[in-house]
Simulated scan of single mutants.
Amino acid sequence: MNKRASLLSLLMGVFLLFIWELSARQVSELILPRPLTVFTVLWKGILDGYFLSHILTTVVELIIGLLMGGFLGVLLGIIIGESPFLKNVFSVYIVISQAIPKIALAPLFMLWFGYGMMSKIVITALICFFPLLEATASAIQHVNSDQLTLFRLMNASRWQTLWYLKLPAGLPTIVQGLRVAVVLSLVGALVGEFIGAKKGLGALIIASQGMMDTTLMFAVLILLAVLGCILYGLVNILENQLWYSKENRNEKN
């Protein structure tokens, strides 16, 4: 992002804060608290550790869920990408699993896995699974035909073709799927916490709703936005590292 775009983005943020402050003055604090009040509650909650356990609970749920869903998504994506037959077998069931809203499945997961962390992890994994499956399968299937022909002429095995051609060439597409899955992992953790949880940022939102504490709710929403930006930024760092490693290999070759 160049300096001009960064400045414009900063000015837009200031403008949105101004609109927020102006709107908050027209209504009750119960409906829309003022920015200074929200940031004061947020800062105090961070300093005294009030938010820490809730943040850690949500982060653990989304990381484990993302790892589980991501691993299964990539693995099944490779299998489907390598075998059109298996794609025809599994595709109907994959679509059915995604057609059912996850929030409708959440009560069942609570019944099966309890109200602890496991049910939230399973919901998160299920939500993260599909984007990586689709991205991986697409990356495996859409490979440069000339490169694929070259590997066949060199008598490369199926495993060698997958490892040295399809996966490296498909990394940008897989990372795009990971970027979507990372954002959805936060949604998955929150969905589980909304249904039933004692800790976590989602549980804190439900608690603030019950106490009619709109200021606390806004503070938690800001924490969620920051957490989402951090996760998104980590994926961007990973993508840059992959591109850097790829360019170094090309230069050596």
Rank of each mutant, 00 (worst) to 15 (best):
Q26C: 09
Q26S: 08
V27N: 09
V27Q: 09
V27G: 10
L32I: 03
L36A: 07
T37D: 07
T37N: 04
V38H: 00
V41Y: 01
W43Y: 08
W43D: 03
K44L: 08
I46D: 00
L47A: 09
D48C: 06
D48L: 04
D48A: 04
F51T: 01
S53M: 04
H54T: 03
L56P: 04
L56F: 08
T58C: 01
T58N: 00
V59I: 07
E61K: 00
L62M: 15
L62I: 15
I63L: 03
I64F: 01
I64V: 09
L66G: 02
L66N: 02
L67E: 02
L67G: 00
M68V: 14
G69L: 06
F71M: 10
L72F: 06
L72H: 07
G73Y: 00
L75E: 10
G77T: 05
I80R: 06
E82F: 07
S83V: 11
S83K: 10
P84M: 12
P84A: 12
K87I: 13
K87S: 15
N88D: 12
V89G: 13
V89I: 15
F90L: 02
V92K: 02
V92N: 02
V95I: 11
I96K: 01
I100S: 11
I100G: 10
I100C: 14
A104K: 14
L105F: 08
F109K: 01
M110F: 11
L111A: 10
L111Y: 06
L111T: 12
G114V: 10
Y115D: 00
S119G: 05
S119R: 01
I121V: 07
L126Q: 04
C128H: 04
F129V: 09
F129N: 06
F129M: 08
F130Y: 10
F130G: 02
T136H: 01
A137Y: 09
S138L: 07
Q141V: 13
Q141R: 12
H142Q: 14
H142I: 14
H142F: 14
N144D: 15
N144I: 12
S145V: 15
S145C: 13
D146S: 06
Q147N: 15
L148A: 05
T149W: 08
L150C: 13
F151H: 14
L153P: 03
L153A: 14
L153T: 12
M154N: 15
M154I: 15
N155P: 02
A156E: 13
S157Q: 14
T161A: 04
T161W: 07
T161M: 09
L162Y: 04
L165T: 13
K166M: 09
